[in-house]
């Protein structure tokens, strides 16, 4: 589905991503973990077309998307739910969701998708007419997820969905992500919450200082001594 090949990305004069390669199969769920400043957000921005790489390829269904504009990438079914949610606070929940299906293809299916989103996230239906900015953090994260789903993604990328959420809400959140995966959407989960992220995923990647430091089956990574020491504090 998505594969990143030998990607280099600069930020000003600094080289943030230094030769990253990774692969996500159809219907798979992978987790990308790493500490703050490892380059996760830069990598995601590049995948979504917000930043252009220095070199390397990003293949979506075999076609290089690294030179495409963000809207073209969304149109091809790669959608990111950004860190910090980035909602439109003064608009209602429903208007936020509808803007998720701004592009032509998604707009055609807006009604059905909206029904599907409300079914998956029933809390949102009750808040549909409220300004998104007035909701709690957890609810806002739901809106962000719903808005992402409205774009009818083939692959959905979550950037730190659990940030700022209580442990209980985090569990609920991961449950929703699992449901999305079970419905057939490919999922890439980027997290600092290493344990939870790896528990859910099929495979995992560990990003350190702009490079992939470890990769493998998620279950294996969880058993890895080095990873345990540096990320799980065990």
């Amino acid at each position: 589905m998505l594969s990143v090949e030998d990607l280099y990305v600069n930020y000003g004069t600094l080289r943030i991503i230094q030769g990253v390669s990774m692969k996500i199969e159809d219907g798979e769920m992978i987790s990308l973990v790493g500490s703050n400043g490892a380059g996760k957000t830069t990598l995601l921005k590049t995948i979504s077309g917000l930043k252009k790489p220095e070199s390397g390829k990003i293949l979506l269904d075999g076609e290089d998307i690294s030179a495409l504009s963000p809207d073209r990438i969304v149109a091809r079914g790669l959608v990111q739910i950004p860190e910090g949610r980035k909602l439109f606070p003064q608009m209602t929940v429903q208007e936020n969701l509808e803007l998720g299906s701004y592009l032509k293809e998604a707009k055609k299916k807006r009604k059905e998708t909206l029904a599907y989103v409300y079914e998956m996230l029933p809390d949102l239906k009750k808040k549909a007419a409220m300004p998104a900015g007035s909701l709690s953090g957890g609810q806002q994260q739901m809106v962000a997820i719903g808005r992402g789903l409205m774009a009818c993604p083939k692959i959905l990328i979550f950037d730190e969905p659990s940030i700022g959420l209580s442990p209980l809400l985090t569990d609920i959140m991961f449950e929703i992500i699992r449901k999305i995966k079970d419905s057939g959407t490919t999922v890439m989960l980027v997290e600092q919450n290493v344990q939870n992220a790896l528990k859910m995923a099929d495979r995992g990647y560990v990003l350190e200082q702009g490079r992939i430091a470890m990769e493998g089956r998620a279950a294996d990574l969880l058993e890895n001594e080095e990873l345990k020491k540096s990320y799980l504090g065990i």
Binding site: L50, P70, D71, A75, P82, R85, K86, Y102, A151
Partner: peptide
């Protein structure tokens, strides 16, 4: 940024 990520040009 949020708008861009939703495919808004």
């Amino acid at each position: 940024e949020g708008a861009t990520l939703m495919g808004i040009r």
